[in-house]
Design a protein around this nucleic acid. Structure first.
Lengths: 329, 329
DNA sequence: CTGAAAGCGCTTACAG
DNA sequence: CTGAAAGCGCTTACAG
């Protein structure tokens, strides 16, 4: 391995001091243009690359953000991360992506790793089983900003960016009601998650008020649960519409729809809340209220940069949703 | 922000030297047990955390691996990364995940970032458009090991771990032939990718030899392309079976299958090469030759650790495939 | 068994 | 405009 090119090496070769070389490389106004040119040229030729560790040690901060998510595989998180990455790159940051596999103890480990790496900030979507958020608060007290996103804790004094769950639910449900649907099966996820609660509340607010519309609520923790509930219920209840609060539940329901050869939308209408990948796998494509991970990423990054610039007060932000029409209603 | 606890602070409080504290914390045999106890206790109380940057600067290496993939969203990469992470955690490493969005110039940028961060090693699945792999070779010459996986370059003297493409293709195709299928439409991805070539060769080897079996080959760069090719061809050619070399192509074909209300497997059999998520979304579930990202992750990590231990010679490893039976044949 | 010292590669206040 | 020097927090050969 060839020895690394360092400031010292450049300085020696040019008969300059390390300080001058350092300044020349960062275009410091003090330095003569001629000197800058000389230094920058040699640096180019020798492919000088600053040692990140030395910089971080010196400045006590890094240009890396931590991202903690239950799993990167979902389309939503994926597009969130993509959009975060786009912004991060633009500002010279990189991302350290850590998965909690929806396990609070791994989540904690990941948080610790972020702290150890002294990341510049952390984006986190908590696991569905996370109850204790003290560790997060503690990290924040050590001056590492935390932006919670999507799955956020039920705690006031922290920074959150969310999908407008109520608005998204409303869009989806109204799409059904406007078509005169009268008997809705609604599938929700884990009852302990605040995201479920928010979507559920909104659903109840709208449909509960209608007295010409029947509905049944189901909680399914995964796709196959949704599948079996659907199959048990569909012939008994004869619903004219299905609401799924997530992609996962939608895949479960749709598998049964294919199995039972139910015609969409003639026999049954379907609407979901989704980021868009799963709904377009089917024919007809499923209508959904869009929860854009992409937009949320931009918003979260924005909030982070503001935080780093000094606006550290707690704030809850959300992005709007929009209805994407498939042929399923 | 409270001042960070450093070795110096511990040393001062205990009236010991920094060296002794440092050694005590790492259980160095030289240090008296009594001293160790004292130091470790105080470190615990004060929640001492070593400064990663200082360590990295001092030792000139980090406990982080870079992972460069076209996109993290596919089930295959996701499970690959998951399995890598599991191993990494066990050995005290973390992962820096970078996406190339299948763009060679971003890929290069990511490679550079890995180099700048002086990662301990890099796992990379190259983009479909990558032609110049010199930059990778150059990084490796600077003592950063590179393990190529899945989408590997067509270059001999580098380390690769792959799915056994020929074996997987063989499994999938034979599943069709054994059922007496005589007319196969086969969908392949981008012709420039070596993975496509390998799967294609294997396909031709098997089906080409049969003279009682007709087949047609199509190259589709994305799902909707596969969709339209399928729709144009299916009524003309009246195939009795479909082969898809990837999940993406499968989603395209399946969407048209739903649209045209083709009965699987009565009207048509389908088999794919996949990691398993997409095939089980449908009813009946699609049979597939499994390419396990999980197993590949373990293999890749293993190879990396061996490399770091000194076995730096080029090697090509692969994992076997297995046929998962759905109801689609 | 413990400590003083050098050094990893950089930045930046201070001096000239 | 340039440089000498201190220091970020750690590790480790060397000395005792």
């Amino acid at each position: 391995m060839k020895a690394n090119v360092t400031l010292k090496k450049l300085a020696d070769m040019l008969n300059l001091s390390i300080s001058t070389v350092s300044r020349a490389l960062k275009d410091h106004p003090d330095i003569a243009q001629q000197t800058k040119d000389k230094v920058q040229e040699l640096a180019e030729i020798l492919e000088y690359e600053p040692n990140t560790y030395a910089i971080n040690l010196r400045t006590n901060k890094s240009k890396e953000f931590g991202v903690i998510v239950p799993a990167v595989s979902s389309y939503f998180y994926h597009s969130f991360i993509n959009s975060l990455e786009e912004e991060a790159r633009r500002y010279g940051y990189s991302l350290m992506i850590l998965q909690s596999v929806d396990d609070p103890s791994i989540e904690l480990e990941n948080l610790k790793r972020c702290k150890l790496s002294r990341v510049a900030g952390i984006f986190v979507s908590i696991s569905s089983k996370t109850v204790d958020i003290k560790p997060f608060i503690k990290v924040e007290e050590q001056d590492i900003p935390i932006i919670f996103f999507d799955k956020v804790p039920d705690f006031d004094t922290c920074n959150k960016v969310c999908v407008a769950d109520a608005a998204a639910t409303e869009l989806a449900v109204n799409a059904l009601l406007n078509k005169g649907k009268k008997n809705i099966l609604a599938f929700f996820g884990d009852q302990n998650m605040s995201i479920t609660q928010r979507r559920l509340n909104s659903f109840n607010n709208i449909v509960g008020k209608k007295n010409d519309c029947e509905f049944q609520l189901f909680f399914a923790e995964n796709a196959s649960k949704a599948s079996s509930i659907f199959e048990e219920t569909v012939y008994k209840t004869k619903p004219d519409a299905i609401f799924c609060m997530s992609d996962e539940l939608l895949t479960g329901v749709m598998k049964s729809v294919q199995k039972l050869q139910i015609k969409i939308p003639d026999d049954l209408s379907i609407v979901a809340i989704s980021d868009g990948f799963i709904p377009q796998l089917y024919y007809p494509e499923i209508a959904y209220a869009e929860t854009s991970g992409f937009k949320l990423g931009k918003l979260a990054f924005n909030r982070m940069m503001k935080y780093l610039a000094g606006h550290t007060y707690a704030q809850e932000l959300s992005i709007d949703s929009v209805l994407i029409n498939g042929g399923s209603i």
